[in-house]
Design a protein around this nucleic acid. Structure first.
Lengths: 360, 360
DNA sequence: ATGAAAGCGCTAACAT
DNA sequence: ATGTTAGCGCTTTCAT
């Protein structure tokens, strides 16, 4: 149809500026909800409902939408959805390292539990100083996750303030601190240290040692261990306790070296509590290399009950934490909270157990 | 002021519908860019620029904005930013388990490298069957990450298609496959298997064994190992090779059990290649328990060069992969791509090395 | 049960 | 260098 039925106005001097100069379309993303809606012959809202709350939609529409989605390979853009609904379905976790005994299991469990509830995990690693950690917290807050899980991370005062100000649900998961930021799923380092000291003293050990990482988390256990050894209820006679510190992360090698240091500083040490099974394996290995018998000459207790603890020789006595449960509870608390439910019990002590094996 | 200066119209039948009935305001989020702009006395764009591209802004505005941000504790909403800019600054990674020898290090390195470039990592775990894996991929695609890193995950044909259709940059990081989906940073399982077989045969071993997980990744190495042993260049005389499979994940325990099976099925086995150092530790432990000397009676090679490999006794000969480099390259490729740069070499073989220690 | 309109809080594109 | 405008692709709210 080339007939100029509606003639365009021929240039009259300078053309009047059109009121809405059509600007270049922004780069087209992929296919959108609207296109699916057109294809299905329904409104955008019906597509949204068919995808998110299918029970609110008639069978007819459901079928049409499903067909359109199928044929286009449409995957809804959750960034847009998050912005509109103010729920990101993203949860952030910050741990010192995913390699740690408790954290690895907790992160795995978090991922699994969140996935089952249609949420995803964003993972951050702290442990490079306060400044980086605060920057990391801001990066996380900027994404408006539905929750933040802190594993063994003690935020700075400033970080803590921002966390609170953000209004994002927070679950701390390491120590049973007195004044949690928000929710808390943890275990008591003091209780563990006391229990292990008592366990060893009851078995006749008198010269105790503690080997742990050079960070606050291990330090808490160390001081509680020493205190329990020297002043605890099990104390009947002369007991000594000494602490050796290794540079994090804990390795078999640092465990071996630390035993050397321990024997130099406190000869005759007859029992050692390590802040990780990996360190304990190093201690056992080094003891063997030095002709010390485990447990006759020296008893060794680890932490974490890693998979190898039961199967090395001698098998390791260790402290077991149910880290999977920690992850599950943290995930549930956050998801419940973001669904507007009141979280019944937001402060849980998951406890611990001492698994007694050959090394003691 | 109770004087009715402007009398409200008394109900005149049904009141005429006002053209724009003001609806209830949506739940207010926190503080927004616009409020910061008002506080600073500048436009929203100036705040945006001051935060994202400070070099494009005058010192005066920069100062005003900084002050306003400081006083409000404003943290920009990246969900909105992502939607507007079509860049999420999120990268997704999928691994069978974060506990695996290569993956743990790769994930750590990914997190660190991405954080340095102002990106975050979203982590998924596959390994629960094709159906869950495809669902996971869809959940990831829905978030429109700037890239997806696949670690030891071989997507189904359907998953592969969706990945390609999504247009999201993908880095595969496990095997040097022939036809990568997109980018590739890996190493050759075949080359490793051949090298280890040759290594063992050259040292006089004749009855070889392979112990690996019951999944495709290990299976590739297993068959290449057997093939190299039976048909490889190093073959001078009678050589046998046998494969034992353990249920994933690999543990010290399954390594111990597998050695038992191996000796039952192929008595006189004098060298074993394990698909993980953890399995190798189990084999060494079980050998000791059975009175077999390592390496005199049986040589053991692990995989991963985990931190304990050098420090257990006997120390483990193992295959070392530079997983940190894999993570770095993957992160760089993706970030570069999302910045519109052409990625120079998008197919990298990071190689491997055999670290020879006491166990051989 | 379905649809229309109005944003969610930013940034790209354009204009000055 | 700074501001204005119009979306990004969804979901909430309200009306039918």
């Amino acid at each position: 149809m080339s007939a100029p039925s509606n003639k365009q106005p021929v240039a009259a001097g300078r053309s009047a500026p059109s009121p809405l100069p059509p600007r270049r379309a922004r780069v087209a993303g992929g296919i959108t909800l609207l296109e699916v809606a057109r294809l299905a012959g329904v409104s955008a809202m019906s597509v949204s409902r068919a995808l998110n709350t299918p029970e609110q939609v008639s069978a007819a529409i459901l079928a049409k939408v499903r067909a359109a989605v199928e044929s286009t390979g449409y995957v809804a853009n959750r960034v847009a959805g998050s912005l509109a609904s103010q729920r990101s379905r993203l949860v952030a976790a910050v741990v010192p390292s995913i390699a740690g005994p408790v954290f690895q299991e907790m992160v795995q469990s978090l991922i699994a539990e969140l996935a089952a509830r249609d949420h995803q995990l964003m993972l951050g690693q702290s442990g490079y100083g306060t400044q980086e950690e605060d920057a990391l917290l801001d990066a996380i807050i900027g994404r408006r996750p539905d929750g933040i899980v802190l594993g063994g991370v003690v935020p700075s005062a400033a970080g803590r303030r921002r966390l609170v100000a953000s209004g994002i649900p927070v679950v701390e998961t390491w120590d049973m601190v007195q004044d949690p930021i928000d929710m808390l799923v943890g275990f008591s380092h003091e209780a563990i240290a006391t229990a292990v000291a008592t366990f060893l003293i009851e078995r006749g050990r008198r010269r105790l040692g503690f080997i742990g990482g050079n960070h606050e988390r291990a330090a808490r256990r160390a001081s509680a261990f020493v205190h329990s050894a020297l002043h605890g209820p099990a104390r009947e006679r002369e007991i000594s306790a000494h602490v050796e510190t290794v540079v994090a992360p804990a390795t078999v090698r640092s465990g071996r070296q630390a035993l050397g240091e321990m024997l130099r500083h406190q000869p005759g040490t007859d029992a050692i509590f390590c802040s990780s099974d990996v360190l304990a394996l190093g201690v056992v290995t080094e003891a063997a290399a030095r002709g010390l018998r485990v447990p006759q000459d020296i008893a060794v207790v680890g932490f974490g009950d890693l998979d190898f603890a039961a199967d090395v020789s001698p098998s390791l006595t260790t402290v077991r934490i149910d880290s999977t449960r920690i992850g599950q509870l943290a995930a549930r608390f956050i998801v419940s909270r973001s669904e507007g439910l009141d979280v019944e019990e937001a402060k849980v002590d998951v406890g611990f157990s001492i698994v007694s094996r050959e090394s003691t």
